[in-house]
Nucleic acid binder design. Structure first.
Lengths: 219, 219
DNA sequence: ATAACATTCAATAAGTCTATTGAATGTTGT
DNA sequence: ACAACATTCAATAGACTTATTGAATGTTAT
């Protein structure tokens, strides 16, 4: 093998991995799988993809060595092959946030169209948690909460928030989080809470990023 | 704009950026541009791409907001739009190193087919440099050295190494570096030096990674 | 102005990717 | 063994991507 053949082969291999990430649906799937293992049907239900199509996209991710499949009874659970996959997608996302005007105006437009609200960083939240100055709510669907969540967070799925307001005291600040920076469930929750007399903020990023930073989690 | 439209749009935008990275030639171009700005012709000469084809790939990177073009006289210099681009590509590369068996066996096969040699990490090298225990040689083409290099490194392009051996003392350890972990110039240099009675090691990674770690550089 | 030269553009053919079907496979619980 | 159900497979049409040409554009130096 000559040096040139080596280069050709290795960049090809790297680009095949990257190509598998280069599709909007597959990036969305990665954000779902970052919450924990999930079967094909769950992916399908949480996106606009048909089951067959979700399955095909998952195969592409599997062949690119980005996810692996494990059967448990009737269901086949897909999961990220390692945290490096999430880290690579995070780096790509940060690149978009940092340099892509389209990405930024989409984020700004959508977020400030509804009410404006405050964000809180991971370290700020951690400090408030240590002083018991805050209630943290996980507004993802309950099964994602069960797969793992921020320590001492309450599970109040965004869907059910309106009927569960009485579980929250109006005196203490509320911080809501969800799947990550591209997920809007926490945004909706914070807006709803602020309209109803609470003092609510959105955690920047979501559960996967909190976990990846080594901050306290439980399941 | 509904939540679903937002998601569709933002993942589409992110995937368009990612798609631009999903091609072997464009990844190779990124590794070249990580050494510093370069005109189309330089990219063409250092790859297997025709000028027209290199230009087209650069346009793709430009539309994806990954590189920008700046004319200086007759030449148009392309450069990475920000260090986030390099970081994203690094994260992808690390993902390949960590999880892709094909990538690993390519690296191992090629590297151990020739002689085996030792690697040295950035921090180990830094320490040796502080004790003047080492000569660092930059084996990239000289114009890449001129755009920026490790502090106090000598420029001895791999091409010219055989005719410049007398510039190196046999008593002191030599560390060679080049463009990065997928570049073979330092490998060749280290093998050649070891065959000729020197004690040589290869720096893990290359100049862009050294610079990105905030270690001492000059130009 | 003109020649020299770096780069881009336009057209094209071959190859690759995607969503949609409906049928096939594999597992569970009876 | 069978029904129920989760997932995959195979075929296909339409949409993109890529490398190759050769011509067009834009800049510099004379």
């Amino acid at each position: 093998m000559t040096a040139r053949e080596f280069k050709t082969a290795i960049y090809k291999e790297m680009s095949e991995m990257t190509k598998a990430l280069g599709n909007p649906h597959r990036l969305e799937i990665l954000d779902l799988l970052a919450q924990g293992p999930a079967p094909v049907e769950y992916i399908s239900k949480n996106t606009t993809l048909s089951v067959a199509n979700a399955s095909q996209h998952l195969q592409v991710l599997k062949h690119a060595k980005l996810v692996k499949a494990e059967r448990k009874g009737k269901y086949i659970y897909y999961k990220l092959i390692s945290v490096d996959v999430f880290n690579a997608w995070s780096a790509l996302r940060n690149l978009g946030f940092a340099n892509n005007g389209e990405v930024n105006s989409l984020l700004k437009d959508y977020r400030s169209k509804s009410e404006e609200f405050e964000m809180i960083s991971k370290s700020e939240l951690l400090e408030k948690m240590e002083h018991d100055d805050v209630v943290v709510i996980d507004v993802r669907p309950e099964d994602e909460y069960r797969k793992g969540h921020i320590k001492r967070a309450l599970s109040i799925p965004e869907k059910n928030l309106h009927e569960r307001l009485e579980e929250l005291s109006g005196d203490i600040e509320v911080v809501a989080y969800c799947r990550g920076p591209l997920c809007l469930m926490a945004d909706e929750a914070v807006n709803y809470l602020n309209k109803n007399g609470f003092k609510a903020k959105r955690l920047e990023y979501g559960f996967p990023e909190w976990q990846e930073s080594g901050l306290p989690v439980e399941s």
